[in-house]
Each structure stands twice: as C-alpha cells, then as structure tokens.
Design a protein around this nucleic acid. Sequence first.
DNA 1: GCGATCCTTT
Length: 644
Amino acid sequence: MCSGSCFQHCISLLKGCKSLKNLTQIQAYASKTGLHNHRFILGQLLLLSSVSIADAIEHACRLFSHIPSPDAFMYNTLIRGLSESQAPRHSLLLYAQMRRRFLLPDSFSFAFILKAAANSRSLHTGTQLHCQALALGLDTHLFVRTTLVSMYAECGEIHHAHKAFDETPQPNIVTWNAIVTACFRCDDVEGAESLFDRMPWRNLTSWNLMLAGYMKAGKLEQARTTFKAMPPQKDPVSWSTMIVGFAHSGCSDEAFGFFRESHKMGTRPNGVSLTGVLSACAQTGAFEFGKILHCYIQKAGYDHIVSVSNALLDTYAKCGNIDMAGLVFHWMMEKKSIVSWTSMIAALAMHGHGEEAIQLFHEMEGSAVRPDGITFISVLYACSHAGLIEQGSEHFSKMIEIYGIEPTVEHYGCMVDLYGRAGLLDRAYELVMGMSVEPNTVIWRTLLGACSIHGNVLLAEQVKERLSELDPNNSGDHVLLSNIYAVAGEWSNVAAVRRSMTKQKIKKTPGWSTIEVEKVVYSFIAGDGPNGVTEEALEKLREIMLKLKLEGYVPEIGSVLHDIEEEEKEDAVSRHSEKLAVAFGLARLCEGSMIRIVKNLRVCKDCHTVMKLISKVYGREIVVRDRSRFHLFRQGSCSCRDYW
DNA sequence: GCGATCCTTT
C-alpha cells in the first residue's frame, strides 16, 4: 500500500542520505511502505552505496544480488563503484555478466569499465575493451576517449595514450588535462610541459595536475614556482598537493609552512592535507603538534576517514607514543584497513615489542583483511629487532608457501638483518648468495652493519668491496668500515680508509637530532658552530657529564673515526647531536616530562650508555628514535635491551 | 535517474 506521498518522502530521504546507517534506515522505510522493489528507488540506493558513501561497496553488492533483473543503469552503477574499490577486477566480472544477459553497454559502461582496467593496470583488458567500444561505435564518445587516454597511460603505454588523444576530433579541457597527466604518469615531464603550454584553455585542475606532476617527479622548486604563477583562487586540492608533496620528499618544514599558509588563507583542511601534515609530524617527531591535530580531527569528524586515522596512528608511533597509536588503532573498529594493521605491527616492532607484533599479525590473519608483502616486511622487521630468529624464519617461509608472496629485496633485507644482528653471519651471507633477486646496496650495507656489531673484519672487507662497486661514494659505508678497523685496533687501515675518503672527496653525513619544546622543533647538528641554543645545550651537557662521571661513567670511543688523542676523541663523542638534544631537553623541559628525540643516524654506543645513565641519575624517561627503531630509556635501562 | 582529468596513510 504505497502512496505517492510515501514515494516523495523516500526521495527526499535519499537526497539527504550521508551514511551507511542512514541508508539502512531508508531501506527499512522503503520495505515498510512497499517501495523496496521500486526500480527507481533501488537504483538510487545502489548509487548511494556504490559511489557516494565511503566503504559501503559490500552493502551495494548485497543489494544488487537481490535485484531480480538489474537494468543497464544498475550494472553501470555497481561497475563504477567496484572499479574504484580495492578489487577493481570484480567490476570486470560484473561487466561480463551484463553482456551475457544481453544488456547493451553504453558510453557510461565504457567510461567506468575502462577505469577498472586502468586501476588494475591491465593493458590486455583495456585493449580488449577498446576493441569492444570500437565495435559498438562508442570509442569516439568524448568521455570514453578521455578514459582511454588515462587508461593507456596508467598501463604504461604512453604511445597509445598519445594516439587516443591525437585521434580525438574535438578534445575539451578534460581531454587535455588527461593527456598532460598521462605524460607525468609515464615520467615525461618535458612532454607534459609542452602540452600544458599548448593547451587552448586551462582550469584549476590543469594547474593542480601540474603541481602534482612536478611533485611526483621530485621537482619541488618547479612546483613552488607554478603554485606562485597560478591564479590566486586555489582550492583544497592545490594546497594538499603542496603539503603532501613536500612531506613526501622529506621537507617537513615546507609542509608545515604550506599547511599554516592554507589555514591563514581560510582554506579548511581536508583529509588529504591532514595526512600530509601528519606525515610531516611523524618524520620530525612533532608530538605536541600531532596531538593538536588529533583534537581537531576528532572535533571535525575527520577520524572517519581511514587514511587520516592511519596517518595519525603512524604519527603517534613515530613520535614514540605506542599507547596512543594503539588507541587510534582500536578506535578504528571494523574500519581497519590493511594499512592500519601493517602500521600497527610496524609500530610495535619499532618499539621492540616483537612478540606483541607477531600476536597482532596472527589476529590479523583471523580478520577479514589479508596480509600483503608490505605487512610481511613489518613482521620480519619485528622479528629481527626482537631477536626472534626462528619466528622470523618461519614467517618468511609462510609468506612464500602459504600466502604465495614472492620475496622482494626488502624481505631479504629483514632476513639478513635478522641473522646478521644475531651473529649468524654465515647464515646471513648464505642467504644473500642464494637470493632470487639481485642484492642491492641496502642488503650489503645491512651485512656490513652486522659485521660491525660482531667485529668480523674479514667479511666486512669482502662486503665493502661489493659496496664500492655499487655505490663508491657512500660516506656511511666508509665510516662503518673504518669503525670496524678501529674497534679491532687496526689503525693503519683506519688511516687508509680516511685517506681514500679525502681523496675521493667523501664527506661524512652530518648527524642531526631534533627535539620539540613547546611545539617548536629544535635541531642540533654534531660539530655545529656556536649559536644560541647550541651554547645553551653545551653548557648543560658539561654539567651532566661531570655528574655522570661521578657516577662512574667512562666514555666509549670505539665509534670515533680516526686515531686521535684520547681526550680529543672523548670530545668528539661528547658533542654528538643526540647528547646536545638531551641536554637541551633537560635544561628546557619541565621536571617529570618525557624527553623525545629524533635522530637521523643510528645512535652510537656511547650515547646509548649516556642516555641510560641520565634516565637513572636524573630520573627522567627519554625516548630516542634513531634511523631504525625506538629506544625508551627508563631507570638505567633501554627497551631495546641493548640489542640494536 | 549515472559519467571522463588533479591531492590519500603502511
């Protein structure tokens, strides 16, 4: 018993529908008023769940499966939704079903299904679909043509993309934008520039895609220049492209700057700009700023966006706060994506909680989310940092045999680290020699690091030789080898390495550390000239060292590069950037608050000892994030159990 | 009654 007013009411409900919960209520209403089989209503429900509402695609599939004989509109809608989903290939199956039922695909169908081919990077499928469109006379349709241009580019066939564009009789602005994007996709920056110059019209998207293209190509200055040159009416995409681009290239200050600037210009942050600025916080360890962003995200409701919550989780983890990372993870409830699981496993691993990381991985195996190769990198990393050798080997085999994931050089890197760090250098070397992919510099460098920990001079020399072939100018490798000689007391070899470094004009990568005090990030560089904060830190450091020596501290100078006088060596170690940062923190941060430091290189043995002592003598908790993990110093010991 | 091009975390 459905009246016209019920129908009208249902339509107005559909117009205001914003969430899945909302949609379910409307479905219940439709059912109650006998409208649940009304084809128009069904079509709108399908459109909402497939396209408009995030993460509702499964609901859409269920709805679709109950529709007796779906029409072309319904097929197109679900194909569209699936083509943007995690599994774009499913939409190809649906397209096949549509054809089996003798429903004629139209220009809409091809625009959506070609997108699925693009998203699954399947040139074969894309080409076949192109042929079918041709047979149906739909390949000249402007919307189809534009999608063809981007499909070919996405599948790496730039020539076909150009051909599709050149054969378009009257390309419009969107077609032009598509071909410029296509050039950037295929790393042809000059091609993109020359087409951009020849464009008969430009809209905001044209400018935005230039920004994105430059950013992706690592041409940061060109992006900045373009940003200045474009019309002043920027949109949230323009701003987020800049923020994400700089953050991605490691230029956190620039990312923060653009974020603040966009705020000043009255542009509200969006999900994308928030992930960008959070990633900048994660890089620099800006914990306080991260917390402020968290408040804003919750208040404005951005925590429903999975990528934002994931970025927040990662920020807390990389700022040393594993508990907050865990809370964000749990708040995500059933919305956890593969990235959320992987990030949380990595977070636990970074903090040395290897057993918990593996436990979480097992929990993940029981969930609906299937682990991928990146998840296994986190798992193996967890094993290597916690010294779980057998667990690591088992998971490595499991990945290949049960999950059918081919190991990449990153997986081997974790395994070499696992064996090498544990002192099983032969097993590590054996693995490297039997790798199914060519070992790269990272692999050899990991092995060299293991030689350094375990003082294996012979293997180190062999490994360094391979590194010199692949990457002769890397300062870290020279420094590591020279440290190995130094520890072994082979001073003539130390001197030889130093001479060759001078001859090849190789400079040591300067170590830096950062610390956030009252939402300002201060950075310290080893051997930096005098400036305000360095002076302040040095003065405090002298006081600390004196106190520690009274407690029986003896400097460890094994990691000093050259054979110099003992006192001089001590001086060099005592100015390491992390010591300056911790001293600055002790001087400036209020009593009882945690000291958080981020360092670009691995923390040295002496600094590690000093941190442990400070945590005991001064009764302070110190968190140091170095190049590879976290160290939590508390009451004289470190969370890494001196295994790093 | 849907459409095509730009920014998303591990």
